[in-house]
Amino acid sequence: MKTKHTYSFFILAILLLLCFVVNISLGSVSIPFSEVIASIFGNSNNESWQYIIQDYRLPKAFTAILVGSGLGISGLLMQTLFRNPLAGPFVLGISSGASLGVALVILGSGLFGGIFASLLISKWSIVIAASLGSFLVLLAVLLVSSKVRDTMAILIIGLMFGSITAAIVSVLSYFSSAEQLQQYIFWGFGSLGNLSWNELFIFFGIYLLGILLAIFSIKALNTFLLGENYAKSLGLDVKTSRFIIIISTSLLAGTITAFAGPIAFIGLAIPHMTRQIFNTSNHKILLPAVFLFGAIVMLICDSIAQLPSSDYTLPINAITSLIGAPVVVWLLVRQRKMVF
C-alpha cells in the first residue's frame, strides 16, 4: 500500500519537473533548449533571451505552480469541510468578493473621473481591491458562521453573498463605458504572466501561510470524514478547526484571485482528479498529491495557452476548463463511479 503511493508520488514529482522545463522552453520567441537552461543560471550570452527567461517565463512558471497547487488545495479543503463534491474554493463567495473589488475600481473609476481615475487603475490597486473584496466577503461569512452551527447553511450563505456581489457588478457594468468593460473582462480572463519577482515574493508569502494552515489541518480534515458529531466525540475542537480551514482557503483563493484573476475550474476539478487516481480520502496522501497535480495541470494549461511559437496568448481561464473538463469526464466514465 505505502510503496504504491510512493511510486505515484515519484512519478508526479518527475512530471512536475518535466512540465516546468517544457513550460519555460515554450513561448512566442523560440529559444534553443541549451540556452534556456543556461539562461536560468544566468550563463547565457544572449541578453534578450536571458531577460525573457529570467524576468518573464520563470516568474510565470512559478506563478502557475502557486496558482494550481493553491487552488487545488483550497478546493480540497472546501469539499471536505462542506461534505460536498461540488464545493470549490469560490463557494464561499471569495471570488465574487474579489470581482466586486476589482469592478468597483475599474468600472467605478468613471464616477470619480479625471486624474484620480487613472491613478486608481494601476496594477497594485487592482490587487489590493481584489484582496480587500475577498477579505470583506470572507469576514461576513465568518461572522455568520460563528452564529450558524450547520456547515451546509454556511455554504448557502456563501453562495448568497456571491449572488449579491454578482448583482452589484451587473449594475456597475450597466453604467460603464465600453473601454472600462473591456478592461474588466480582460481581468476576468485570468493571467499568470503579469507578476514581477517582487510581487511573486509577496504572493508566495501569503500562499505559504495558507499552505501551512492546511498542513496543520490534515488531522482535523481526516476526522471530518466521519462527520461533525464523530469529530467532536474524538476530542476535536470543531469550531476552531473549521475556522482555520476557512482562513486557509481564503488566504489561498483570495491572493490567487488578486494576483492572477478569477481562475475557474482548477479548484473544483483537481481534487476530483487526484481522488480518482489515488483512490483514497486520506488527506495525508491527498494534500501532497493535490499540490503536485494542481501545479502540473496549471503548467500544462499555461503552456497551451500561450500557443507556442505564435504571438497570441489565449485566456488562461478558458484553457483550464477546455482542457480540464474533458479529463474529469473521462476519469469519471472510466472509473464508472465517483470516488469521494
Partner: peptide, 22 residues
C-alpha cells in the same frame, strides 16, 4: 476537557459517514 472526554467515551451514531473511501 474535550480530549479527556474523547478518551473516556466513544460513539457509534446513526448518521452516514461522509466518505466511505477509506
Amino acid at each position: 476537557t474535550a480530549l479527556d472526554l474523547a478518551k473516556t467515551m466513544s460513539l457509534v451514531l446513526t448518521e452516514q459517514l461522509m466518505s466511505k473511501n477509506l
